[in-house]
Design a protein around this nucleic acid. Sequence first.
DNA 1: TCTGCAATGTAGGCGACGTCAACAATGATG
DNA 2: CATCATTGTTGACGTCGCCTACATTGCAGA
Lengths: 204, 204
Amino acid sequence: MGSMPSEKPETRPYHHGDLRTALLASAERTLREKGVASLSLRELARDVGVSHAAPGRHFKDKQALLNALAQNGFERMAHALEAADDPALPLQPRLTAFARAYLGFAINNAELLELMYARKHEPDASEQMTAALDRTVGSLERVIAAAQQRDEIIAGDPEQLTLTVGAALHGLAAFTANGTYAPDAALDAVEELIHQLLHGLKPR
Amino acid sequence: MGSMPSEKPETRPYHHGDLRTALLASAERTLREKGVASLSLRELARDVGVSHAAPGRHFKDKQALLNALAQNGFERMAHALEAADDPALPLQPRLTAFARAYLGFAINNAELLELMYARKHEPDASEQMTAALDRTVGSLERVIAAAQQRDEIIAGDPEQLTLTVGAALHGLAAFTANGTYAPDAALDAVEELIHQLLHGLKPR
DNA sequence: TCTGCAATGTAGGCGACGTCAACAATGATG
DNA sequence: CATCATTGTTGACGTCGCCTACATTGCAGA
């Protein structure tokens, strides 16, 4: 970096530069620390150092900002799940790793997850949102389908199988995110849960 | 309509009579119809026909009213689950009936369910709340324990088994409540889900 | 290079909200 | 019948989301 002429950090330029990104970052921080209930556009503007109406230039209304947060969350989650999936593994460890990744995301982003699954965007659904969602369930469906081809899992509608596994995972994540279950306890329970899903609860 | 002596619907007595109950009833109606986001104490007061500060006499703040709604919801849910459980049935139909009852409640009370599981009451947790919650998971745990005694289910920590089944049920309910899954589709999938839970996903 | 326009930020105001304090009506208890 | 806790009313305060009018800036075409 050469010699920046006249670097006065206090004298903000009239234009922020990347206000939209700054708002999203600050919003996610507040979301994590104080919850969605105490997240106001005006306070956000204060935190970032702009006027109370500035956010309106980048987000039509508050819901639009929340949608952007959710969207962002879905993308990060999809990425985390894909990164955690190792197609070389046999079914059980592969599923366990997948489950741990999902649960880990849920634990580290409890408030965000709530936002992601809030059915607020019925009107337009923002297509990008559902696309990102499909991408995550697609990840799981791929694991299931691969296992079916290897005869590691019973035949049948892959969608129904995905639903069963997905519901169990999401349920555990929800219990953890809402405080019913402690994070460590949930992580401890994952392996056993997967085992029970695969082998069933009835005696053989 | 007969001759009610001096029925002036406009002349309300100064005291409402049972404002607390009326507020809760109106609140639940609004909750169901317009969602928790558009539920304000002032509008509630207007609907019931009292001044904007009157609700404050019965609920310390808005959260207290929401807690009361959630509490009420838990009690109704616990009752519904207990009513739907027939201990005489063998495991599979018994679990299926239980699952249908839970799913039915979730479908008919989607917004309320969200309130019930919102981790907002961390401070005091209102003990009654957790008591009602314990009652519902107790219902399921009883089904599991009974099945174990009849050798219809594998041995092992009943709590872990309850977690697996409970997570699957709650996950499905959550998918339905937040619009990911259509109610009818979910109800159709219940039987198969229970079957897969009991028999496992691995080929035998 | 200059100019004009779209993008971006500011200032102020509107109505609604939750909450509080001060006051008024009521009805139960002695 | 008097007293007083309960319950409802009124008015106010600060915050919020959102809107409009205006200010500043950067960029594109002359």
